[in-house]
Write a protein that binds this DNA or RNA. Structure first.
Lengths: 261, 261
DNA sequence: CGGTATTTTGAGTATCGTCAAGGCCAGTGG
DNA sequence: CCACTGGCCTTGACGATACTCAAAATACCG
């Protein structure tokens, strides 16, 4: 159980938004205004970033690491409904108070903005507004991708889909991914227990499915949480009904494999 | 197979937006401007509203009936990733061209707006912008709800979750729902085949699970597509890990049951 | 009323959930 | 340094569930 720690608050104005693909490309005055109200925080793996019960008074952008978004059930268990990586945003939901809580899956850096000034800034800067909208739409698409993965009748298929997702959807994150000669090594950012909940099964089945994929030669289990994907095509075939080959991210992936030695 | 029919185009300016909870409450000039660029269309069950391949040049609001959003797989099969009801919006996605196609699940009325003037209007009217954002956030939450339903290890649990969703999430739609003395009668808007894909199983398992629930007395199968839910609590227990009782929509449901004779 | 599509039922097998035990690793305290 | 502990991951065995294939029954539509 993670402590309800607030993480390091950092001093205001210390953050440099120029590093961020997204926020850095906004108009200068918006960037400096954002930097003014920005509070960077550091979290260690397991710490709670925003808990489900309270009315969250801030929105956050993931600067580094991976967060997991989860629903807290009445019996205390957590149910993961998504992973937040790089540049992803959280803290805006239709039905407040926030139904979901956010926890650090790995050590993470998060940029937080108090809600009120952030919303105000949204109205002043259309580019920022557009960017935020884009993030949300993106998240929506990803949630639907999850749905398709989860709708696979077999555990092996769902697991394969999950691994594919890690390879193709989060290809920029070096925490997650290292690209080798003809294989991709990924670090699974969550425990078997959580993965089982996420994929609608049990830890034992996850373990068996994983080792079954390894027996087929599609993957190699380097460490329990480090998987080397040796045959993306076989993995894609395992998912059965998905046309990964047509997605833009797949193309990126394949070309990345080719370019790197 | 639905024909790629465009549906009735209706004449411009004919639609009256005052009827709509959402759009009707906007400032007068925005409403009249919306009415000006609005093209109402009628679709019959099975018709395609927007297909996945082409770049959709319009956004739509569901005025009546139910649409289903689905991903078209390379082998031609369709995979449902959500149902659109009343007031729901579609046609805005992060990665264009649209990955998903939209089909009428029942006869439906849809208000369409060409993308360009609609986006322009968005920038002029903050209230409209806010409303659209709200719709998207809402859809995101619902997609996450789907995820939790899909993550149930057992078919019965997922099916129960689906029925609960129909009862509590779409309680206003009379196409779907009739409230009786101490039970709720719902019309399942999709076929067993689609339901099986949606819930990650097969039609046979859907059928068996449904009849198992009927044997327990939780539901009564009036017709294959008409289900009378007699015991919401038992159904909620079937889902196991969800705290429906705490959701606002559950409260609404229960009170609605009490008020209606 | 006939024809088609959908739904249901049945039987056999594979998968998966469940319970239980063992192994691996990191941190703790002797 | 080593035994101990607790958390995770893995393995095994068994029974329940669900997938597969096949056929029958029912609903739907003209």
């Amino acid at each position: 159980m993670g402590q309800a720690d607030d993480g390091d608050r950092g001093s205001p104005g210390r953050c440099n938004l120029a590093d961020f693909r997204q926020l850095g490309s906004l108009p200068h005055e918006t960037v400096s205004e954002l930097e003014r109200i920005c509070r960077p925080r550091s979290f260690r793996a397991g710490q709670i970033v925003a808990s489900g019960g309270d009315n969250p008074d801030f929105v956050g952008f993931v600067a580094e690491g991976i967060l997991r978004m989860q629903k807290t059930l009445h019996d205390g268990r957590q149910h993961i409904v998504g992973l937040l990586v790089d540049d992803d945003m959280f803290g805006r939901s239709a039905d407040l108070p926030l139904e979901y809580s956010v926890e650090a899956a790995t050590d993470a850096e998060v940029l937080t903005f108090r809600r009120a000034p952030f919303e105000a800034l949204l109205q002043q800067c259309p580019e920022l507004d557009r960017l935020v909208l884009q993030r949300i739409l993106n998240e929506l698409d990803r949630a639907r991708d999850w749905m398709i993965i989860l709708a696979n009748p077999h555990v092996r298929g769902r697991l394969a889909g999950f691994l594919m997702m890690l390879c193709t959807r989060y290809p920029t994150i070096d925490h997650v991914l290292r690209i080798g000669r003809s294989s991709v090594t990924i670090k699974v950012p969550i425990s078997r227990t959580d993965l089982a909940h996420l994929l609608g099964t049990r830890t034992e089945s996850i373990s068996r499915a994983l080792h079954a994929l390894a027996a087929d030669g599609s993957i190699v289990i380097r460490r329990p949480d480090v998987i080397e994907v040796r045959d993306l095509v076989a993995l894609a075939a395992e998912t059965g009904d998905q046309d990964w080959a047509n997605t833009a991210s797949w193309q990126q992936m394949v070309s990345a494999l080719r370019s790197k030695p």
